[in-house]
Design a protein around this nucleic acid. Structure first.
Lengths: 232, 232
DNA sequence: CGGTGACTTGAATCCGCTCAACTGCGGTGG
DNA sequence: CCACCGCAGTTGAGCGGATTCAAGTCACCG
């Protein structure tokens, strides 16, 4: 069963696979694009080691990717917002490198990579768009390396928050006010700190009046001041 | 002036753009591939902010990429070995995101991205190969995030060394014995530590008999023990 | 209600940093 | 050839930021 949710009526298409494609080409793409029932909170799109067959695109909701490491420890490797593609790093190896699960109820579109590759031969602009997206994601990892280089805990947290902020803004949501879908300990895990440290840092920032946090609802008050902290 | 160095007589072709291409297709690719005079130590392939026009492939030698950050500080973002492509993360933005300079005398091949894209429309396998390489690089960044998550200084250094080791091996060099082309402080910068810490850690590891280091010549004695440290 | 999991708070500890002095080496020029 | 310089690397002492461990609060859900 697939819902009638097509790329040509999706607000996120410009950020996503459809990109700058012509209406005709988008229609062509839509023939292979499917959108299953929404996933409930905590469901997996795919798991580490599974065969790579589809490209996934988030239509709504937040998704988390993570690795199993030895012991029972998990390493969180990313949080993904609507319009982002998932699983692309598995093209080379043919197997998914990470687990991917929803942090809330999510709509997810998918397309068989095989079908996509065939279609790409007919529509060069589509290939080009995938290239663009992958390049963008590489650029993003780049930032990440930069930001995990020797930085204070406060810098790390603030960079993380500002990164989320700009990504929300790009998608038409508020850059100043949004919901962190994830737990403190997941943030901590992701940016290489301890949950307790995250708590203390939020308390600090709140006391300085730079932001407010109630439960997971975040309000950034002074973005320029936060940017200063990010580059300290 | 361009030297007569073609993909079809290059040992690294399978790792590089040529990949699994047929001989005919490689000949086609070679028409657009050029290989200038070797670059001397310290020369730049490109600089941050410059327009992205070419894809570069390292034929021999080691290359370092780095960012200028505010103040005079630099952040090193990668060390690149023969067979690796440079500048791909600039496809999306059209401008290079990082500086790229040689750590020693290097041969570098290049191809105009425009020419490549055109050729890719004629030879789908070539497009596919670029996709593969980019996916592989994304997978690599993935490792990186994993490895910059909360880890001890010793883990970080060892992971860095083992990563170099496997990459050398993949290229037909020894996995146990190779030359670190970079300074201690560059390693430190890259993995988010201090030069002094790097020194101390090397001293430790050497005392434990796990490796030997003279100047920049490294000899890994007990790789399985090192792997244990990497996952601690 | 009790119970669980997320989050907070406090005190003690430790890892890696900072700063400063020192060694060793390669290059340059007298 | 040696004296000098500058940079890479090493070593030591003290400091501080983030972790660890442990106890306590809070909200949610059975």
């Amino acid at each position: 069963m697939s819902l009638h949710l097509a790329c040509d009526n999706c607000d996120l298409a410009p950020l996503c696979l459809a990109g700058e494609l012509s209406q005709d080409n988008i229609k062509e793409l839509d023939k292979f694009m499917t959108c299953r029932r929404p996933l409930e909170k905590g469901e997996h799109l795919f798991r580490q080691g599974e065969e790579f067959t589809n490209i996934y695109a988030i239509r709504s909701g937040t998704v988390q990717s993570y690795l199993h490491t030895d012991k029972k420890a998990e390493q969180i490797t990313g949080f993904h917002l609507p319009g982002e593609l998932l699983g692309l790093n598995a093209i080379a190896g043919g197997k998914h490198l990470s687990n991917c699960k929803t942090l809330e109820r999510c709509s997810v579109c998918e397309i068989s990579f095989e079908a996509f590759a065939e279609l790409g031969e007919k529509i060069p602009a589509l290939q080009q768009q995938l290239l663009l997206i992958m390049s963008k994601e590489m650029a993003h990892s780049y930032q990440f390396i930069h930001f995990f280089g020797k930085r204070s805990a406060k810098s790390r947290l603030v960079i993380f928050l500002l990164n989320l902020s700009t990504r929300f803004k790009l998608r038409g949501f508020s850059a100043r006010q949004f919901n962190l879908g994830m737990r403190r300990m997941d943030i901590a895990n992701y940016i290489g700190l301890n949950p307790e440290t995250i708590t203390r840092l939020f308390a600090d920032l709140q006391q300085q009046g730079l932001l407010e946090l109630h439960k997971r609802q975040l309000h950034l008050h002074d973005i320029t001041a936060l940017e200063k902290i990010a580059n300290s």
